[in-house]
Design a protein around this nucleic acid. Structure first.
Ligand code: MN
Ligand code: MN
Ligand code: ZN
Ligand code: ZN
Lengths: 137, 137
DNA sequence: ATATAAATTAGAATAACTCTAAACTAACTG
DNA sequence: CAGTTAGTTTAGAGTTATTCTAATTTATAT
């Protein structure tokens, strides 16, 4: 149950990021264990709960750096907060508008057919399907 | 070329909204002419340019009331601003991440197949496909 | 006309970020 | 190692889109 940081250290180094105490704690929460969908606030709360003092500015910095390096992907589903996804491969989401819960649509349960070409002079950068659901009565 | 408000007055009354000077001006900009994609700021600028004094708070109020009444639909594509669409029927969007341009994907050029059922205890409320494009370089 | 409920508004407040500039630290070099 | 330097963290201030508050105004009903 120990040597807990080796994997995460490598992951950060490969991304060209120094494995600092803060980034290690954040990366461990994000990448050790299954795929996750998080916001800056929830990640900040988790890292504090794990007794690592990290500022909110650093959480935002890390989320953006991880995203730029391809370790995370941003999912836009709510105009009031940014969500980040540790699963960077192409997949789609359920978003519960009442609870704010973001969850994956299992692969194969949805597919987009006959993708349109990008308008003239533009280049495609991603395709996202969001299936919105409600849980409140 | 006159009696310019009759259509819009009916539309507001049917939605249970009093046809005030402000709502008439906003509804005219929104619904007279083709389908539109707008933000609160752009609509506010337009209404001022048309020489009708309307506060930004009223623009936000109207956008939300129109949305609740089904005259508009909100499209979530950018975590920093809310877009509203005068076309409330089911259709999908291109979003240019460089310019902020939101445009419709022509009907038939895309389709989502094998829609998943909503997770247990949840009810489906919408399906949105966003095709992100870039125009810079 | 009056009354009443609904709507508008200025400006303050909020919330999610982003920025700045100073303090710290990881990594390199000899 | 000790010294240097570039990268990182941070507190707190700043920004921006949006919401709220409470006072004023207006639409509608009688
Ligand atoms: Mn924001
Ligand atoms: Mn916002
Ligand atoms: Zn996901
Ligand atoms: Zn549209």
């Amino acid at each position: 149950m120990d040597r807990p940081y080796t994997g995460v250290i490598e992951r950060l180094k490969n991304a060209g990021l120094r494995p600092t105490r803060q980034r290690l704690a954040l990366a461990k929460l994000l990448f050790d264990g299954g795929d996750r969908h998080i916001t800056a606030e929830t990640l900040h709360a988790e890292v504090l709960a794990a007794n690592v003092r990290v500022s909110l500015a650093t959480v935002y910095n890390a989320l953006h750096q991880f995203t730029r390096s391809g370790l995370l992907r941003e999912v836009v589903v709510d105009s009031s907060r940014a969500y980040f996804d540790t699963n960077t491969s192409g997949h789609h989401h359920f978003f519960d508008e009442d609870t704010g819960d973001l969850s994956d649509i299992p692969d194969g349960e949805i597919s987009v057919s006959s993708l349109p070409g990008a308008p003239a002079g533009k280049v495609l950068s991603g395709v996202e399907v969001v299936v919105r659901v409600r849980s409140q009565q």
